[in-house]
Design a protein around this nucleic acid. Structure first.
Length: 424
RNA sequence: GGAGAGAUGGCUGAGUGGUCGAAAGCGCUCCCCUGCUAAGGGAGUAUACGUUAAUAGCGUAUCGAGGGUUCGAAUCCCUCUCUCUCCGCCA
């Protein structure tokens, strides 16, 4: 959520900022509601005040043994009027909240203009794109030829957008996950965390997947409904929900490996081939909870942590700064890491690192006591993939493919591959 | 699944209808005392919203969540969520 005070006082600035995303903020409707709210709130609180003071008077009169009948008569109609005002106020507040929850985060200054991924700005490249003196295959063909990647089998069990992996390929994914967790915990100082994969709607509301993007997630019919997590960001970030941290508790650096479940509503026809866009995939997530002044720097280091993974795996990649139109709902600023995929001849997203500023913290009521003022203030939250295991697997298959159809295992994964240096 | 107990401020924990935003302790902040350390004395110390030039006043809300009774609810009633104890069941 955007700071309601900011929304109220600098409505036009907010509108202009959100317009950069292509989001149209109906300020007329908002301001009209806001005006109603103010009037109703003043009225309601005045009536409440009257009720409180007369109740107090009745109590005092009773204690002195005086006749309270006239006092009771005086407040007779008060309750009814109050009830009416409260009800109206509640309705208006609910409408306002619906509007506020539907507003995306304010973009950071450095977010470039643009409407889609073509307008993202490349910041840097790392690594050499491998040269092949044979015809390269994409990961689907490589995996199928190895007999280790089977989409037909998965379709039989669960339909499209699922995969079955076997043998050393399945092991390679596990090795990737272990490798990434170890890098982040041992070298980058993240705490390894195990979290639930099923969460309540309040958790998704906190990280802003709800209420706008319900269609993107898998919802169970449990009562109350449970949702399969679309990313470990949800349980990890929600650890801070309703928490008042001591300033010495922060920053918190958390990492977890989890499966991620996405219904991919509205992506029909996109990336239907292969592992790129699945209903279920594995990911190692990085989450940082920091003080308000530290999130900008934290985003740089967090992105660097994700980059380290690709560098160790010797996978060529580039870093792009997402443009206004491509930046996600809750993010103020996002860097994507895009890995080189020889099978597609282009860079594809493998990690997305975002600064959410206080947007999620406000929804979650995640606060820290300011060391100087002693006052609670909202924390800032950040997260990034460190990195998506399924897509890393794709990148390894395609970048490390050999002419004979085998795939060399990156040196960095050796400790977790049990002596297997080539998948054949 | 069955029976019972509980949920109060940063923390622990009193409080069964009116003067309770809430005792006390801990923690924290400031001051005093003390030649270090330890101890001691005093004062202060919730959040959000509204009003406002104001982080000054004043008002309103908040004692797990939602509803109800009442002139008045932390306190009584109902529903739900969570925690703990015991029993059963299953690993």
């Amino acid at each position: 959520m955007i700071d309601p005070k900011l929304l109220r006082t600098r409505t036009e600035e907010v509108k202009a900022n959100l317009a950069r995303r292509g989001f149209e903020f109906d300020t007329d409707a908002y301001l009209a509601l806001e005006e109603q709210r103010k009037a109703l709130q003043v009225e309601t609180e005045t009536l409440q005040g009257e009720r409180n003071s007369s109740a107090k008077r009745i109590g005092q009169a009773k204690a002195k043994g005086e006749d309270i009948e006239p006092l009771l008569a005086a407040v007779k109609t008060l309750g009814e009027r109050l009830e009416q005002a409260e009800e109206q106020l509640k309705g208006v507040q609910q409408s306002l909240r619906d509007i506020e929850l539907g507003l995306p985060n304010l973009l950071a200054e450095e977010v470039p203009d643009g409407s889609d991924e073509d307008d993202n700005v490349e910041l840097r490249r790392w690594g050499e794109q491998p040269q092949f003196d044979f015809e390269v295959k994409d990961h689907v063909a490589i995996g199928a030829d190895l007999g280790m990647l089977d989409f037909d089998a998965a379709a039989k069990i669960s339909g499209s957008r699922f995969a079955v992996m076997r043998g050393d390929l399945a092991r390679l994914q596990r090795a990737l996950i272990q490798f990434m967790l170890d890098v982040h915990t041992r070298e980058h100082g993240y705490e390894e965390t195990y979290v639930p994969y099923l969460v309540h709607d309040t958790a998704l509301l906190g990280t802003s997947q709800l209420p706008k993007f319900e269609a993107d997630s898998f919802k169970t019919d449990a009562d109350p409904p449970m949702y399969l997590i679309p990313t470990a960001e949800v349980p990890l970030t929600n650890l801070a929900r309703d928490t008042l941290f001591d300033s010495s508790d922060l920053p918190l650096h958390l990492t977890a490996h989890t499966p991620c479940f996405r219904s991919e509503a509205g992506s029909y026809g996109q990336d239907t081939r292969g592992l790129i866009r699945q209903h279920q995939f594995e990911k190692v997530e990085l989450v940082q909870l920091v003080g308000a002044g530290e999130s900008a720097a934290a985003l740089e280091t967090l992105t660097g942590h994700a980059e380290t993974v690709l560098q160790r795996l010797e996978l060529p990649y580039r870093v792009v700064r997402l443009c206004a139109g491509d930046t996600g709902f809750g993010a103020a600023l996002t860097y994507d890491l895009e890995v080189w995929l020889p099978g597609q001849g282009r860079y594809r997203e493998i990690s997305s690192c975002s600064n959410f500023s206080d947007f999620q913290a406000r929804r979650m009521r995640a606060r820290v006591r300011n060391a100087d003022t002693g006052k609670p203030e909202l924390i800032h939250t950040l997260n990034g993939s460190g990195v998506a295991a399924g897509r890393a697997l794709v990148a390894i298959l395609e970048n490390y493919q050999q002419e004979d159809g085998s795939v060399r295992v990156p040196d960095a994964l050796e400790p977790w591959m049990g002596g297997v240096s080539r998948i054949a």
